[in-house]
Write a protein that binds this DNA or RNA. Structure first.
Lengths: 213, 213, 213, 213
DNA sequence: TATGAATGAGCCTTCATTCAT
DNA sequence: GATGAATGAAGGCTCATTCAT
């Protein structure tokens, strides 16, 4: 559906894309060979070029196709929740749970997302921004509801949340993806919501008992 | 000081390393050419190999040498603070301020840290872990002091803080490093400490559907 | 007629050959793609191989089929003339006029004839030689008639005439095939017949430093 | 001298160019492999790219460098002759003699010169045009002197002469370059000067005894 | 017969690394 | 130590050809 598929065996498009996800996740973009992706997909080298313009197009398509799929699931799940706090928790659960289900996609995203400013970021800003936007909407809703502090910067919080999620996932990926990732969702949500401080937030003012802060 | 080299020799070692930081920061590791680093350093291509085993060793050394320098500064600054909250704020200020001062180093760290699981992470886990350890010590101290919640996971918080810092820096790098990075230190610290929730933390249990915020 | 094919079959054979002429004339043999020829002919790539052994066979066939057609026309026209000089003029007119009518064929012949010694020349020497032979016959006839100088080398004259025609056509092809090619026939024939010298030929000895021209 | 040469073994530039002439002359441009040229030159594949931008640059340089050398010799030799007829004969002798001395260069020129309108002709029109120009000057001088017929077209004669020379050389190349090429110079010059007709030129009018012309 | 998706050999080019000077 | 010309392995990509449908 994404592309005009030729012939009847045209889930080859998907097979190659899946293979690319696997190979990129193992070695990273630059150290992956097209021939390896072809072998992983069970096709000839040349076949890759029937479905993708070049090696880079493979990476771009991973983001465009796969992330779009993931995002759709995200939005649907989040929209079923009513209040902002529940939505935020849902977002976190989806993120960690989803990546746990597709660890290779997670690895590719983790590895490439930051790496290549020009390349990926530019071409896929749109897809990635959707997650940011969704998160921003949740936070704004929380502010309106009063469930989230109004004086916080939505932009900063977005980065805080996604950055923490990224880092957690990244560590999990690098550690070999053995542990349960989703188990971290609840405590992480707690930290976002209430901070690490032992005393209630009083509105942005630094903690009282601190002397030197 | 780092190595038993003096005068000219040490100069060239440093010149090449500085050049590598610049070049890697512009293009990323794989797209950087050794010859470009040599040109940037004002030496011949072959000279690079008198000081570094190979291209990868350049990257490794950046982390080993540069990060060690940075870490030393970090530890000294942090140790001057008394309580955990002040130390945490100091850590954040140092991180954002430091990277703002050395944006090229920031870019390299940002780009490569995630990219290459095998490569960098393995060889430089030690250096990077020092930051993690320092952060862990700060949090543990906070728990002992009672200034930080005791039920939170030190490991998780470490990742939350570093992940958020990473993301903020990453966005700043990709945006072209124009704005003030350190200006984000205070609000970010506030978020870490008090969370985004409109109501006080009650001990770890999130408070859903709060009306009073 | 050429081959025992009729109706559809012959049509496709010819369609592909015509397409090959067009495509080869645009890009030359090596830079033409079989798929492009197929597209130009309105058939599938594979169909080309039902009618021609391979890409090279296409080129060979162009010379064999097309040149044979052209040669037949040539011989017929020339044989209608009586004396050698008229026949030679007819030959030149046919050559220039014919190529003007089929500029694409002209382009292919021009481009490939020289290019590939082994290839084309060997396989198609026969076809091309027929023109040479025809030209040789004309010259021999002229010698017998006394209308052409008997001491000239028939072989050399053949090359002179064909070479000059080639060059003129080649220039015309490279210039974009805009001007009238046939208009050059008469002046060219004059040059062949009477040379460029301002004084009469006296029997083979060139007359240097002539003052009376 | 042509290019800024590096190191002291920099007649490698020439060695590679000579090798390219040989290989191109054997197989033609498209069927020649860069690796074969490198082998012929006794250097590594990559070395070729230290001296030439790419494969095409090799061909372009052959024309630029080699033809320039040849042309210089041409002009000098021709300028030593006084009258146009002698100059023309000198030109022909040089052409045939020169190519006989450098048969491989001859082969390359013959093969590639026509083949690739875009490529070679465009980039090397300048070099090739010099020969045309020189020939044009000779003919114009002849007209002024009165040794050549004033009513003939200089442009057409240029093509006639070069075309015939080309064809003669081409045949010689294709035949294996065994015979003496220069031996054809005199009879060829005679043909150019006096034509093939058995009777004196009368000024462009077709030959009287012909009835049907 | 016709199709066109699939194949995979082949080649140009890059660039990390070496080594003679 | 310093140089930088030379190396050559490696890999992205093309396209003539095949063959299952």
């Amino acid at each position: 559906m994404e592309r005009p598929m030729r012939g009847r065996v045209a889930d080859k498009h998907r097979a190659i894309l899946d293979a690319a996800v696997k190979v990129f996740s193992r070695k990273g973009f630059f150290q992956s060979k097209v021939s390896e992706i072809a072998r992983e997909a069970g096709v000839a080298d040349g076949t890759v070029y029937l479905y993708f313009k070049n090696k880079e197009d493979l990476l771009t398509s991973i983001f465009a196709v796969k992330l779009k799929e993931v995002f759709t699931t995200f939005r649907e799940a989040v929209s079923k929740e009513k209040d902002a706090v529940s939505k935020l928790k849902c977002f976190i659960h989806m993120h960690l749970g989803g990546l746990q289900t597709y660890p290779e996609l997670a690895a590719v995203v983790q590895q490439e997302i930051r790496h290549r400013s020009r390349f990926v970021r530019e071409h896929n800003r749109h897809e990635l921004d959707r997650f940011m936007e969704l998160l921003g909407e949740i936070i704004e809703q929380g502010k309106r509801e009063g469930s989230l502090r109004r004086e916080i910067s939505t932009g900063l919080v977005k980065h805080l949340v996604l950055g923490a999620l990224d880092e957690v996932v990244s560590t999990w990926v690098l550690a070999g993806m053995y542990d349960s990732l989703e188990a971290l969702a609840e405590p992480l949500a707690d930290l976002f919501l209430h901070g690490i401080c032992g005393v209630p937030a009083t509105g942005g003012k630094p903690v009282p008992e601190t002397k030197s802060g």
